[in-house]
């Protein structure tokens, strides 16, 4: 039996800001541009993939983030089990997409760490280290952005009002977490 060790092990509460890692969350990278790709994915997942840049779509179980004209990230809305890494959706998608050469399906569950930020000071915190203009972003639920925060590539997903998911590569996550907390303490 293997132990599960996430890179961030603590939750942090600040005035008007709560930060914590949510794990394990299954994450998949989907790529494809053949005409069969979108219908097959949408039928398999029972949800529509966003085709408008920097937007997302959600179903009861999954959320899909637009990454590029032929690339999406799918992640589960619910926490997965820690004692196994069998993801049924991954297997079905791999068989329906990769095996049939409609596109590619890659498991990136631990490629990204998902940090949830909740509170009214989120965008003030981001302003410490990102050049991105969030004025439109924060008005629109479901909007997404691929930008840099403290020089680190991140994907930001506007989950709901004053609630944001931040995806960062695992190897950078500890450093970024430390930076976020340093900035949050100065808000």
């Amino acid at each position: 039996m293997l132990n599960y060790t996430s890179s961030i092990t603590e939750n942090k509460n600040y005035a008007d800001l709560i930060i914590n890692e949510i794990s394990p969350i299954m994450k998949l990278n989907l790529r494809g541009k053949k005409k069969e790709f979108l219908p097959t994915v949408e039928k398999t997942l029972n949800m529509i993939l966003p085709t408008e840049p920097n937007t997302s779509s959600s179903s009861e179980k999954l959320t899909a983030i637009w990454l590029s004209p032929d690339e999406w990230m799918i992640f589960s809305n619910n926490i997965a089990e820690k004692n196994n890494n069998n993801y049924e959706i991954e297997e079905i998608l791999y068989n329906n997409i990769s095996k049939k050469s409609f596109g590619s399906v890659a498991n990136i569950t631990d490629q990204f760490v998902m940090i949830n930020l909740n509170g009214t000071k989120i965008f003030e915190l981001f302003s410490f280290g990102t050049p991105f203009d969030f004025s439109e972003f924060k008005e629109k639920k479901g909007s997404t952005a691929q930008t840099i925060l403290n020089h680190i590539d991140v994907i930001i997903h506007h989950k709901s009002n004053n609630n944001v998911n931040l995806f960062v590569r695992r190897s950078f996550s500890e450093h970024l977490w430390s930076w976020i907390n340093d900035c949050a303490s100065r808000l």
Binding site: H151, F172, W179
Partner: peptide
Amino acid sequence: VGRNVGEFFDIFRKTPIHE
């Protein structure tokens, strides 16, 4: 410069076995 001082001067990556 922002907060790119001290421990935040440069970015570093850690492996899952770093600890």
